[in-house]
Design a protein around this nucleic acid. Structure first.
Lengths: 278, 278
DNA sequence: CGCACAATGGAATATTAATTCCATTTTCGA
DNA sequence: TCGAAAATGGAATTAATATTCCATTGTGCG
């Protein structure tokens, strides 16, 4: 066993990305050539660790798998799997398993409201961070353009999507964009007010309210462009004139936090307002 | 081999996330129970696919690994590895950390909407962080206790506070708590339905809608306890039976992001529901 | 009601990937 | 320049993981 290896074996494995970075900086420079090569490649490609095998990473770094193994041990890990676990967890711990976490929450039946608040806040924060990485600017631009061109914007969203719809409607009103909220009051069917010159923005989450689905289909059949904000790719919204934007908004205690959807909705509304204002 | 499985085997595997989504939508609904369960879980947790083993994903979706394998084949993949490869390849694009992605989004000078989205997200995130530190658990507990004791909860909030009020109303309905949304439809004045056995939760931001202020005063005069969610300590809500919770929700482009208020409102609603459920 | 076929769970097997081992090469001090 | 220790590459071994298979359960139809 080499001097360097002996030196590391006393150390314990990094427990976070920060510790990993620190350790890397600490040993960098004291390493033999091939291991230095590993260090450089790894620190420049941390994103690949979670999704690559040793063989792949070794090939990409132009070293032998065994060199990478030695490098991992140098950092204090038991092997490559240890290093990989760190990066996989860092990525997916962002979206913890809510079924299990909910169980824990329910278990502490005396759970104070403030614990629940923390849960909502944390979920909302992660949802927002996720939103930034998952929205395609091109799709967003296109949605805004479509809505800005419309003579009248129809806003639809029922049940838990209704708060978003109503805020959209408020924003459009404030910016003096002609819009109409399909609120379902009195079970009146307002869809006959939709014309091909208009546009529709619909918000809907699983289980997709039948009324929303049929409204979207109706508009699509008329040749009226539709923008849908929804939760998963499994949504039943489809058609030549329909563009779908998916937002992941995790549930807490059975209720969607709506933070991401709200932020996205406001972005669209304000952008439309600005574009029309010009 | 089942009919469904035969049908898929002719198809070729999705080559992109978009194709994957399309295929998922296509077969969804025609699937047997367990495979539908896979479809739902997978489409709601696409981010986990790249970093999980079949066993892990199956456990999280609460199905057998073999069910997940059948599901993969249904989509046209040769096995789980095929599906995983698709997501691993797409993984690195969304890896740069939050602040990097945010900066990228902001910098898209050709696209005003994405810069605005970055703004909304960042503001919302800060507001959420602020919220946890600034809400007094004791006040929160007291508010929950008051609402949980009520025979009927009146929910009020107009204009930009209305989305919050309507979501509160939705949550109460779902949890089977008797509640009434004062929505102002037809300018009808619903305040005479308030009795001293009830409680009111009102949401209002500057400039405080007169209707909300007078409703709160009315309830207070009746001896009916009131919880107000508002923005500053300067709000005109006051009275022996009134407890005020302030939430700081920053503006972007003239519009409140509502993320904090929504999170707080949901916390209260769920806590009330739980307390009543006992 | 019972038959046939589809769906499912779980264990057995095959495949792939991680890890170790050792022979060979390189480095460095005497 | 030689020898010893360190470093390295690549194959062999071991562990983990994906995949298949089959017995059992559920379901719809005659």
């Amino acid at each position: 066993m080499s001097r360097a290896q002996r030196a590391m074996s006393e150390k314990t494995a990094p427990a976070s990305i920060e510790e990993f970075d620190a350790r890397l900086r600490e040993i960098s420079g004291t390493l033999p050539k091939r291991l230095q090569q590993c260090a450089e490649f790894v620190s420049a490609n941390t994103d690949r660790i979670a999704v690559s095998t040793v063989a792949e990473l070794a090939a990409a770094a132009d070293v032998q798998p065994s060199a990478l193994m030695r490098f991992c041990k140098m950092l204090g890990f038991k092997g490559y799997s240890g290093l990989q676990r760190l990066f996989r967890d860092a990525y997916s711990q962002q979206w913890p398993d809510y079924s299990t976490r909910l169980a824990t929450l329910r278990a502490q039946s005396d759970s104070a409201p403030s614990a629940l608040l923390a849960e909502f806040v944390e979920t909302g924060r992660l949802a927002l961070e996720d939103l930034v990485g998952n929205v395609d600017p091109a799709v967003l631009d296109q949605a805004v353009a479509v809505l800005a061109k419309a003579r009248l914007v129809h806003v639809a969203g029922y049940r838990r999507a209704f708060p978003v719809a109503s805020y959209l409607s408020y924003a459009f009103e404030k910016m003096e964009c002609p819009s109409m909220l399909h609120d379902g009051t009195g079970q009146l069917n307002q869809r006959h007010s939709i014309s091909p010159d208009d546009a529709v923005i619909a918000v809907s989450f699983a289980p997709y309210t039948a009324q929303t689905v049929s409204l979207v289909d109706h508009a699509n059949d008329l040749g009226c462009p539709v923008v849908v904000l929804t939760d998963t790719a499994m949504s039943p919204f489809d058609g030549d004139n329909v563009s779908v934007i998916t937002v992941k908004d995790a549930d807490v205690a059975g209720f969607r936090s709506l933070t991401s959807t709200m932020s996205l909705a406001m972005t669209i509304a304000v952008s439309v307002g600005r574009m029309r204002g010009v």
